[in-house]
Design a protein around this nucleic acid. Structure first.
Length: 312
DNA sequence: CGTATTTGACCACA
DNA sequence: TGTGGTCAAATACG
């Protein structure tokens, strides 16, 4: 493909964003084709995969466009020096929150704590975990409020994972979620999945993480493990109420999975905030999932020329 | 009635 | 002292 050369020389974020959009367009075309001709033979890519790729492409493009190098660095260094300390203050002590504890994290080695950042147009972006909101604050630098969440199992499992969510851009809306700490609640969870042979689920969830998730800490494998094993619902967001039916696909859970998965099942129903809908009985889409389809890094957009689907 | 969210107050850090 | 992170009582919700 002649385009590959162009892509190889593609360096700027802008070009990457354009490439992401183009790829998304390609996927959309392909999806339309498959929807128009559902029985067309030789369908190597499921509609689900295509839809997911489309969403991812635009999400990535938005993320790129919204990332002004300077402001982002500033913002993030700010988070690293301030926010991330919250995880360390709470996670180092596996004990449950006590009233005697200070209400603000102590100074700590925040730079070494695990942090993820994710930008999404969807305020209820599904990240594979169940969160509980514990605070909301107006940030002086931003006109939008920042919401504070902690893992819903921070008590049951002494899970110190936390995240902040804040709208950073209006048009188009971009929500930035910053993650702190580890999900200790899900370590065993993955084992359950593996025992149950749900590797496809793991791959699917893993894909979520690939969606423009920026990691800036250490111990990637560990964090990845957490994401891979996590299954949950979104949380209510004060600025939007986007449902996440699309995430149903990720929830192929067997009955003997315990811990978080069971709790998810229990919590979904009563939770006023969760927009979770029960997993569809057919896991066919998950089974058809091809993780190679998904874009892990925008630097690899050229790689996806092989998935051009012959539409160009 | 149990659980999740909201929100004002408290507190630590820069 | 200002800012932002957290707590916890009040409130909302199913």
């Amino acid at each position: 493909m002649a385009k590959t050369n162009t892509l190889n020389s593609m360096n700027t974020s802008h070009e990457k964003a354009v490439q992401a959009i183009l790829y998304g367009q390609s996927c959309a075309k392909r999806l339309k084709l498959q929807l128009d001709h559902p029985i067309a033979g030789g369908r190597s890519v499921s509609n689900y995969d295509l839809a997911k790729s489309i969403v991812h492409c635009f999400s990535s493009a938005i993320s790129i466009f919204s990332d002004k190098p300077k402001s982002e660095d500033n913002l993030f260094s700010d988070l690293s020096s301030r926010d991330s300390s919250s995880s360390s203050s709470s996670s180092p002590s596996p004990s449950l929150p006590q009233r005697s504890h200070s209400k603000k994290r102590k100074n700590n080695n925040t730079n070494s704590s695990e942090n993820w950042r994710h930008d999404s147009p969807d305020p209820n972006y599904y990240d594979g975990f169940l969160w509980r909101k514990y605070g909301q604050k107006t940030i002086k630098q931003s006109k939008h409020q920042r919401s504070y969440y902690r893992c819903s199992y921070n008590i049951d499992h002494a899970c110190g994972a936390r995240k902040h969510e804040q709208k950073i851009k209006d048009n188009p809306p971009v929500y930035r979620t910053t993650y702190f700490g580890h999900h200790t609640c899900n370590i065993n969870h993955k084992v359950h999945n593996q025992d149950a042979g749900l590797t496809t689920v793991g791959e699917s969830v893993n894909d979520l993480e690939n969606s423009r998730m920026i990691w800036f800490g250490k111990d990637l494998d560990q964090e990845k493990e957490s994401h891979t094993s996590g299954l949950s619902i979104s949380v209510k967001h004060e600025e939007g109420s986007i449902k996440e039916e699309t995430m149903d696909q990720y929830r192929g859970i067997t009955s003997h999975d315990k811990d978080c998965q069971n709790v998810i099942k229990e919590n979904h129903q009563p939770s006023p905030s969760g927009s979770y809908t029960p997993p569809s009985s057919s896991g066919s889409e998950i089974d058809m999932f091809d993780s190679d389809l998904l874009v892990e890094d925008l630097d690899l957009w050229d790689r996806y020329d092989m998935y051009n689907f012959g539409l160009r």
